[in-house]
Computed example of a mutant assay.
Amino acid sequence: MVHRVAVIGAGPSGLASIKACPDEGMVPTCFECTIHLGGLWRFKEVSEPNRASIYHSLTINASKEMMCYSDFPIPADYPNYMHHSKILKHLKLLKQYLQTNLLYCRPDFSRTGQWEVVTENRDGQEQRHVFDAVICCSGHYTYPNLPLKDFPGTDTFNVNVTQILQSDAGAER
């Protein structure tokens, strides 16, 4: 049974994962590389390196009823099709995240069946953590890190995973 779960990313998918884990008997710890939650919904005048940004006047094209969590509704006084600032304000109400920078995450399946997660705190000190599972919610608007050499057998896999992932990442830019 999986108990401790590392959730990588505090955007909408990471927050949804954090919210769902306790219902499944899992204890989540979220790692976010910025000091903010909300992921793409946090507008930035100047985009951060290797990250996309929404535009200042963006309004969502899905209704708030379709976008909200089933047990965490968006306030009734919010417009049906919200400006990005309202979405971020709503997401900030789910403040369960750990402010830290993820350095790397690697499986230790052969020995323990768990994951080693190494982080760096604000003071630059590395910390090692062990988790039973990892949920990667780093978003699809960042450049991928493909540590395929860490997964035995990828070189003999029938499909060239690297080319597919790189071409998908290039198409999104």
Rank of each mutant, 00 (worst) to 15 (best):
V2S: 08
H3W: 07
R4E: 15
A6C: 05
A6H: 03
G9W: 01
P12F: 04
S13D: 05
G14E: 06
G14Y: 04
G14W: 00
L15T: 03
L15Q: 04
A16R: 06
S17M: 06
K19S: 01
K19E: 05
A20C: 07
P22L: 05
P22H: 00
D23S: 13
D23V: 08
D23T: 12
E24D: 08
E24P: 01
G25Y: 06
M26E: 04
T29M: 05
C30H: 00
F31R: 03
E32S: 01
C33V: 12
C33Q: 13
T34W: 00
T34K: 02
T34P: 02
I35Y: 10
I35C: 09
H36I: 00
G39P: 00
G39M: 00
W41C: 08
R42I: 03
K44E: 15
E48T: 14
A52S: 15
A52V: 07
S53T: 15
S53F: 05
I54A: 14
Y55F: 15
Y55T: 13
Y55Q: 12
Y55R: 11
H56M: 14
L58S: 03
T59Q: 12
A62Q: 08
S63V: 01
K64P: 09
E65N: 08
M66E: 14
M67Y: 14
C68S: 13
S70Y: 04
S70Q: 08
S70M: 05
P73D: 07
A76C: 07
Y78W: 09
Y78G: 06
N80D: 15
N80A: 14
H83A: 13
H84Y: 11
H84C: 14
H84A: 14
S85H: 12
L88C: 05
L88I: 02
H90D: 12
L91C: 05
L91Q: 08
K92F: 03
L94R: 15
K95N: 14
Q96E: 15
Q99P: 10
N101I: 11
N101E: 13
L103T: 11
C105T: 11
C105M: 09
C105L: 09
R106M: 09
R106E: 14
P107Q: 13
P107D: 08
S110M: 09
R111M: 10
T112Y: 08
G113M: 12
G113R: 08
Q114M: 11
Q114L: 11
W115H: 10
E116W: 07
V117P: 02
V118H: 07
E120W: 02
D123E: 13
G124S: 09
G124D: 10
G124A: 06
R128V: 14
H129V: 09
V130N: 09
F131Y: 13
A133E: 07
C136H: 09
C136Y: 11
S138M: 11
G139D: 03
H140D: 13
T142V: 15
N145R: 12
N145T: 15
L146M: 08
F151W: 06
P152Y: 05
G153M: 00
T154K: 03
D155R: 05
F157W: 10
F157I: 04
V159S: 07
N160G: 04
N160A: 06
V161S: 00
T162M: 07
Q163N: 11
Q163L: 05
I164W: 08
I164R: 10
Q166P: 00
A171P: 02
E172D: 08
